[in-house]
Amino acid sequence: MKDFYKIIAKNNGKVTIQDLSGYKMIGKGADGSIFQLTPETCVKVYVNEDNQKKELNALQIGQSSSVIPRLYEYGSNYIVMEFVNGGNLKAYLKKEKQLPESIVKKILFMLDELKKIGFARLDTEVRHIFFNEREEIKVIDHKRALYTVRSVPTKMFTGLKKLGYLEEFLAHVKRINPSLYEEWKNLKIE
């Protein structure tokens, strides 16, 4: 982590992907790249500083919830946050070949938490839902959380359907929360 602080100081508070070549890249997307700094922390370096501001705002608002990664520090084009040591829901389903009710309960808890926080977007992709080594649920990638209104987790449903688990998920929801099941059962998912 000391090396990371030297990079920030050298670059007047900014970070480039090239500066982080000595760190393990753990993710890359349209918004930026994520590098593991320590066993507990990672840094996301953004292509667009406006996207950094949007995600930072959501992370700051979400710090009261256990489903949002801890925020440690930030600069104009980066955010240092909790490294979730575990796998995502997509990888879990491919490996385990089942969707236990205990996992569905955690997903429903996560959706309730996003609503309590005040996020407008109560949706996420299955690849953004993580379980750490203690099987605690965390959700990442919050740039649209406050700016896109989506009260039904359609992206998650679409991902579950592609993986062949939407019907099983909804069957669990029917047992756990019948009223929520009634709200979701007739949605058209592609």
Rank of each mutant, 00 (worst) to 15 (best):
K10F: 01
G13M: 00
K14C: 03
K14F: 14
K14I: 10
K14E: 15
T16M: 00
T16K: 11
Q18P: 02
D19L: 03
L20K: 05
L20S: 02
L20I: 02
S21M: 05
Y23N: 12
Y23Q: 13
K24D: 12
M25T: 15
M25R: 15
I26P: 07
I26R: 07
K28E: 14
G29S: 11
G29E: 14
A30M: 14
D31C: 12
D31K: 10
D31M: 14
G32T: 04
G32A: 06
S33F: 08
S33V: 14
I34G: 02
I34V: 15
Q36W: 05
L37N: 11
T38I: 07
T38S: 15
T41S: 04
C42A: 15
C42Y: 05
V43P: 05
V43W: 10
K44N: 07
V45E: 14
Y46V: 05
Y46R: 07
V47S: 08
V47L: 08
N48T: 05
E49C: 11
D50K: 13
D50Q: 14
K54D: 15
E55D: 02
N57P: 00
A58M: 08
A58T: 14
A58K: 11
L59S: 00
Q60Y: 02
Q60P: 04
Q60F: 00
G62R: 12
Q63I: 10
Q63P: 09
Q63L: 01
Q63Y: 05
Q63N: 12
S64P: 01
S64T: 14
S64Y: 00
S65F: 02
S66I: 09
S66Y: 05
V67L: 04
I68P: 13
P69I: 01
R70D: 08
L71E: 04
L71Y: 04
Y72W: 11
E73R: 13
G75S: 05
N77I: 00
N77R: 07
Y78N: 03
Y78I: 01
Y78C: 08
Y78F: 15
I79E: 08
I79M: 09
V80S: 01
V80I: 15
M81H: 03
M81Y: 04
F83H: 09
V84D: 02
V84E: 01
G86L: 14
G87P: 03
K90Q: 09
K90V: 03
K90L: 12
A91Q: 13
A91L: 06
Y92K: 11
Y92F: 10
Y92E: 06
Y92C: 00
Y92P: 02
L93Y: 06
L93W: 07
L93H: 09
K94L: 10
K94A: 01
K94T: 03
K94E: 14
K95H: 02
K95M: 10
K95Q: 12
Q98P: 03
Q98K: 07
L99W: 09
L99S: 08
E101F: 03
E101K: 11
E101C: 03
E101N: 02
